[in-house]
Design a protein around this nucleic acid. Sequence first.
DNA 1: AAATATATATAAGTAATTTATATATACAAA
DNA 2: TTTGTATATATAAATTACTTATATATATTT
Lengths: 116, 116
Amino acid sequence: MASNDLLKGTLKPIILKLLSERGRMYGYEITQSVKLISKGKIELTFGALYPILHKLEQDGIVKTESEVINNRNRIYYSLTEKGTSTAKEKIAELEEFVNTIRILLKPNYGLDYVHA
Amino acid sequence: MASNDLLKGTLKPIILKLLSERGRMYGYEITQSVKLISKGKIELTFGALYPILHKLEQDGIVKTESEVINNRNRIYYSLTEKGTSTAKEKIAELEEFVNTIRILLKPNYGLDYVHA
DNA sequence: AAATATATATAAGTAATTTATATATACAAA
DNA sequence: TTTGTATATATAAATTACTTATATATATTT
């Protein structure tokens, strides 16, 4: 598959975006949503997901509620008050970043700057 | 400044994009162009740039010509034939990636997939 | 009975960066 | 005149986000 190096740094804001819209989600649900929305192009692996979620909780950006559903433990994550503003920042940052990349990718855009 | 984690994996295709349009460029020129075109938002550091260029040369994607200008050595990089097709692939990959990210960032997009 | 889906977790390894450092010329400002 | 800035390339060490591998356990489907 295509290199996933491109993903680096984008996973956290993507998770925050989902949480900010859905209110609360559990880990497995997040991976499935990302896969579905991205049409399989982005695979958020468990090895990446859980450390990110734990870090977000540790930093007070998300809080958790544990529920037992079908005899299985399920941990719901949702944004804290602090997390809501953090999420806005991180999402805006990613938006600005993709816009910048699009400028750089614009056909022949670089030519306007030759010898500038 | 905003986290540069987002950059990971994007620098190589950005360099290839510039080379594919400008024909040939030297390292310092590449960093300045990226800074200029991105309005200072993307700083391609020398520590990142030169290892990438050396790797691209090693892999036969770019070739070099050395010239002495104003008593200073200047190394021009340009795409090889093989590099031209590699560049196309890498640029297309980055384009697809930013499009996918934009879908994920679309307001309320995630909501269409709840319980899907 | 075996495979797949659901559900969370962590440890080890990889690799693309950042940061720091080195070298050297040209030019402008103080 | 010397201090700083711009030009120009280079590499080594440190960081860190991720991948890969592994572990555990239940529910459902074949």
